[in-house]
Design a protein around this nucleic acid. Structure first.
Lengths: 139, 139
DNA sequence: TAGAATTCCTAGTATCTTACTAGGAATTGA
DNA sequence: TCAATTCCTAGTAAGATACTAGGAATTCTA
């Protein structure tokens, strides 16, 4: 999520190499590459290979919800296995008449409401990390 | 949570042995004993040792929120380590100016709102599981 | 008073997830 | 040509979760 916010902040500046994001956010490059692959397959970022290549957001930060990001990285929203957004039924024997099912549904929907209503732009307005500032070109 | 709802349904009937709950909900007795220990230490249930002993809710189901139950079992509500209800600061180097912090706060508060506003009584009104019915005295 | 039913306590374990590391291949611009 | 980048796959260390196992303490009842 920090990486996506970092990309969002650079949205007007073209592609950003993952090595820059890695340095700014204190995430290893290898790990970031794996996350980026998921984000690319989900159509949230586009990539440019080779020298001076990098990643960039496909849509404007205000158009990208954190729900989309989270789903791209971790699959359908789910707090318990038997009750994900896409419904993995059959994974729990207690499903029929499970008394706590209603609770998990409420929790899932409450979370989804937050995730689908906050965008990357919302989070960009927060103060930038010291590491990110120090890692910017010119520092 | 299913065990607590089971106890809530027996609230007027005195103590219930964990072996009954275990049978009704398909949870192993040994595991249930460990959960019960946490619930007892949190003051949510009281226990009676010996023959014809068992557990019972201390307060009426309508007075017990699932938030209390969850906190008793799993500690302070927390989706990410650096931002639990009691605040375990220092666990994350990115804390200062972390751009995603606001997001996790919103999610945590949204969940807490659900958890602290639904009671065991709310969940008791749901249909009872087949196993629980079959395990009731008289079946 | 014996014995059965229960809670209480501690230690160990199997499985899964998360957050990585490692190493190399393919691509592209200078 | 070469350096910088993305792309791909496999392996791994640590921790959490959901248990199992075994036994000690307590209490009611026959």
């Amino acid at each position: 999520m920090r990486a996506m916010i970092s990309l969002a902040r650079s949205y007007d500046g073209g592609s950003v190499a993952l090595s820059d994001v890695a340095r700014a956010e204190g995430i290893s490059l290898g790990y970031l590459e794996q996350l980026a692959a998921s984000l690319r397959k989900a159509g949230l970022v586009s990539s440019q290979r080779g020298s001076h290549g990098g990643y960039r957001l496909v849509s404007a930060p205000a158009k990208v919800t954190v729900g989309e990001v989270l789903r791209a990285l971790e699959g359908p929203l789910s707090l318990v296995e038997c009750l994900s957004e896409t419904g993995r039924s059959g994974s729990c024997q207690h499903e029929t008449g499970c008394p706590s099912r209603v609770l998990w549904e409420r929790m899932r929907d409450s979370l989804a409401q937050v995730l689908d209503s906050t965008t990357l732009a919302d989070l960009c307005h927060q103060p930038e990390s010291q590491a990110a500032i120090a890692a910017r070109p010119g520092h």
